[in-house]
């Protein structure tokens, strides 16, 4: 990263900066457009006149969405899901990663257990067995159906396992000598030392829970129990225009109100947008830290 002051060097940096800036803007444009549409008047939006700045600025769509019981209800279910789901996921990930991080000499069945879990990453039962297991377990239509089936994320556990292995063995041994058991070592040494990795995994898990919609739609028996993204999915989905009947047509105009859609999309993205910057500094550090073992 030496700053070269030669002409080619400066040219390269300028081109680089330009390229990256263009890339960043490219990612930003759709979001800005959605935001602009959400603040625009409905006619301007449906005529496609809104680009990056609101046309006919107003807050009507936000007022409407925030008063919409469906939206608020789904938002609370999503918040419940994220907090509950992240807690359960992290607890299980940490308690799974700890024993698996031990060497085979200390924990004989280790290889078997690692494969037992890794196998679930490679093969899965498919949609229908998945559904039937959840149904037979009596979880349908409860918030646990969204949390328990994915409670052990093997990928995250492997990440954390590698991170645990990177911690100095001497710490563990010293603790043992002082009379600490496995639980004490896990909670008082490993977990506090792994904060960067844990923050990363918390972010992964939170985003994962926040974004998933399919399970909500399939596993909930009433729309009142949908989390936010399952609800949103039904709002933004494009209608199949080849099968429209008279009663559909009269509601098409209403359904295709783009300002309303945009307001809801933006509001749904907002919580995660707020969490991201705070956890991001751990993010990069965490992923890299776990990956290399001396």
């Amino acid at each position: 990263m030496v700053h070269s002051s030669t002409l080619p060097g400066r040219l390269f940096r300028a081109a680089n900066a330009f390229f990256l800036l263009a890339l960043a803007l490219l990612c930003l444009f759709p979001l800005v457009n959605v935001l602009a549409v959400s603040f625009s008047s409905s006619t301007a939006a449906s005529a496609g006149m809104v680009k990056l700045w609101p046309v006919g600025f107003n807050l009507a769509s936000y007022r409407f969405v925030l008063q919409k019981p469906e939206f608020m209800r789904a938002l609370f279910i999503s918040l419940e899901r994220v907090s509950l789901g992240t807690a359960v996921n992290m607890l299980l990930t940490v308690t799974l990663a700890y024993p698996l991080a031990k060497e085979s000499v200390k924990f004989r069945g280790r290889t078997f257990y690692v494969w037992f879990f890794v196998l679930t990453m490679l093969v899965s039962g498919g949609l229908i067995p998945w559904y039937m297991v959840i149904k037979s377990a009596g979880l349908l239509d409860s918030i646990w159906a969204l949390i328990l089936p994915g409670a052990v994320n093997v990928y995250n556990a492997v990440l954390l396992l590698n991170f645990f292995r990177g911690l100095p063995k001497e710490l563990e041994e010293a603790a043992f000598v002082d009379g600490a058991g496995h639980w004490t070592i896990l909670w008082r040494i490993f977990v506090p030392l792994s904060m960067p990795a844990l923050a990363t995994l918390i972010l992964f898990t939170m985003v994962g829970h926040w974004n998933s919609w399919f399970d909500g739609m399939i596993l909930m028996n009433t729309p009142e129990h949908y989390p936010l993204q399952s609800y949103l999915q039904t709002v933004v989905i494009s209608h199949d225009l080849s099968l429209v009947t008279m009663s559909d047509a009269s509601s098409l105009a209403e359904v295709s109100d783009r300002t309303m859609k945009s307001a809801q999309i933006f509001l749904a993205a907002l919580p995660i947008l707020c969490v991201y910057p705070f956890l991001q500094r751990f993010f990069i550090k965490g992923v890299v830290l776990g990956s290399v073992k001396e």
Binding site: Y131, M217, P223, T234, I237, L243
Partner: peptide, 19 residues
């Protein structure tokens, strides 16, 4: 008695009824 209600007439209903 509705055993379940899904939001979405086409694809969503279809997927759920298939299951």
């Amino acid at each position: 008695k509705n055993k379940w209600v899904v939001n979405g007439e086409g694809n969503q209903y279809n997927q759920k009824i298939n299951l």
